[in-house]
Design a binder for these strands. Structure first.
Lengths: 139, 139
DNA sequence: AATGCAAATGCAAATCTTTTGCAAATGGAG
DNA sequence: CTCCATTTGCAAAAGATTTGCATTTGCATT
């Protein structure tokens, strides 16, 4: 995946900072916090600022280049969007690896909500646990 | 619902601070942030401290007296647990009212996860939108 | 290749939320 | 009533994220 193409496709300027952020996310199959990302990006681009990372995460998220995940344990995690369109995630609590999920529970429940007069606009479905690799090694 | 009974049932000491926190949550059918709760509790119990509220929210959560909800918009919200056992939530983005949901998507997906070797330990399913009352008044 | 400007960045400070250490206070079992 | 583990208040620290502003930079257009 080409960082420049990704950015241009969204009418975003191609800056070294953005390329570094995308590189970090590409090289990780785990979901990362803003701080994690900053810690990695600064290795590539010493001198980059926190605020630049935060601002760009917001921009990339708004443009749909990233997904945001918010575990129960708190915090906000990001990952490169690997799948087009709406989807949910399965996340390993040990290694942080995230997999897209080809299933959305909303279909099953839409009529039930309609009966209650509730109009859904967003929803979230996230599954945490241990991936195959991390299960094998014991808990 | 009796705050004292709730606390005693969980081997927690009955303190004015805890009773005040529970009272606030009982009188609200919306989900509240720690700050919201503090702002209300201090009206009942002037002099109560932030840290007391935070600590007690953690305790009450651990004991299963509260539910924690983390909207995409960020932040952490709490509500009195209205339903025994595992369940999910439907939350109105305007008035914050929360309703328990008698449906869990995990059943539908467990085998699919097993095929991938993933062992789920926790999951979250939250639906945001507008409740009947708030839909009527227009967006 | 040079120009112009909106967009992006760095920096520093501010804000907001949550946590922690510790001494004093207190609930409740015996 | 006494005692002790639990809980609280306080103050400070820690952590995460945001903001204002001057400067720089990408890039579309000369």
């Amino acid at each position: 995946m080409d960082a420049e193409k990704l950015l241009k496709a969204q009418q975003l300027k191609v800056t070294p900072q953005r390329k570094a952020i995308l590189t970090v996310l590409q090289n990780s199959d785990a979901v990362l916090s803003a701080q994690d990302i900053f810690a990695e990006v600064i290795k590539i681009l010493p001198g980059i600022n926190f605020s630049t990372v935060y601002r760009n995460l917001d921009v990339l998220l708004a443009k749909g280049i990233l997904c945001r995940i918010t575990p129960d344990s708190g915090g906000v995690l990001y990952e490169l969007r690997m799948k087009e369109g709406h989807h949910h995630h399965v996340i390993c609590k040990r290694c942080g690896t995230s997999m897209p999920l080809e299933y959305c529970p909303m279909e099953d429940i839409e009529t039930k909500l309609a009966e209650r007069g509730f109009t859904p606009t967003e929803h979230r479905f996230e599954i945490y646990g241990y991936c195959q690799k991390c299960s094998e090694g014991g808990e």
